[in-house]
Nucleic acid binder design. Sequence first.
DNA 1: AGAATAGTGTCTCTCAGACAATATAGG
DNA 2: CCTATATTGTCTGAGAGACACTATTCT
Lengths: 219, 219
Amino acid sequence: MIEDLIRPILTVDVIPLVLKDGCMHVALQRRDKAPYANEMALVGGYVRADEDESATAAALRVLREKAGITPRLLEQLMTFSGAGRDPRGWSASIAYYALQPAESLPTDRNLMLTPLDQARGLPFDHDAILAKAADRWRRRAAYSTLPAFLLPPHFTLSALRAAYESVLGRALNDSAFRRKIDELRVIQPIAGASSKATARPAQLYRLSHDGVTEFDRTL
Amino acid sequence: MIEDLIRPILTVDVIPLVLKDGCMHVALQRRDKAPYANEMALVGGYVRADEDESATAAALRVLREKAGITPRLLEQLMTFSGAGRDPRGWSASIAYYALQPAESLPTDRNLMLTPLDQARGLPFDHDAILAKAADRWRRRAAYSTLPAFLLPPHFTLSALRAAYESVLGRALNDSAFRRKIDELRVIQPIAGASSKATARPAQLYRLSHDGVTEFDRTL
DNA sequence: AGAATAGTGTCTCTCAGACAATATAGG
DNA sequence: CCTATATTGTCTGAGAGACACTATTCT
């Protein structure tokens, strides 16, 4: 019977990822409540069956309420569960990663940017969640438009290439990059718009589709 | 406070996949209880906080108890949640897919093999879960050793190539396949073992690693 | 003019696919 | 010996990377 079940705790944990100084960073937040009060951790909270339409909605709410973040992209990573991961008892946490340009992060929410591969010693099983996120991220970013969501909606080809280079950890050939990204038809030039941030103004582009596009092969 | 939360129902749903007649099939099971009694559905059950160490353990238990299946590989797909997906109330279901050779499925557990792309009209949100599984499966199978888990532990190169061809839906070049699978170092020949199922006996192989290996590029 | 970044054209080399050739068993 | 499948070797074309060259704006 349903009533006989010990119902586990259900939470969401969000990994906010940004690009800063040519390197992936995770925005950790100082916890304001027990357990692990005052420690840096992922942005997490309860799923509220009475107000959240889905777990994704819960993640967006938690991200907005606790960290003041409205991400450009939120994607489910996977669910972590078990008796040992939370001192409050058997729990399941649906983990998400959130992508947004670094400039859009608020500065007054106890957020701290930490290089993705240096974040260690986090409470709960957040080290394991982060490790899984880093692994999945690196694999998926190489053959998808994911890195574009680390940039503002309008971006130059150079900025996009730089984003891919940061993610892949190696320099990409400029002309080959232009050729491939063109063939894949995932970005569109914005007529009449150009960035004047550099010596020579550059054409601005935007993604052709709202969501992520996966390629057949790596860039 | 924890006690104030309406705790959602937490379940697991397993998608047992097999290869039959050169085409992916899902093993659906006739439900023996309400809701949706007697309808064909994924193999699902409650996560029991008092006996399951983790959701993965719950999935293995449900698969064994309800369908008599011990899979060669069980992998988490993603979690589906919301108020509308189960008539019993707000629920979250952690979906898994299970891979095994078709020969290892029991015949007396109300299981029915259905071509993966023809399974429709299932209860709950199982249509959506299955669609997501099919999509993820097709993408991931092409650049990983996943298809090998649809075969018995010892297999010939021809059988492995046939498995990839079924999954990818196209013929693969035989010599290129051997070359690439060899370079990737994911399978090992079994000394002195050969299959006599065909005209000329063929070398038997096994996977080099227990789990799934992902490649950098597609096969 | 010169520096700096944007963008284009071309050459080459590698690798994947096509296909031919060879090997080994059973009938 | 003939057939069927396994396995190996070679040729060729498409595409990725290297790199030189042109374009545009600011100082």
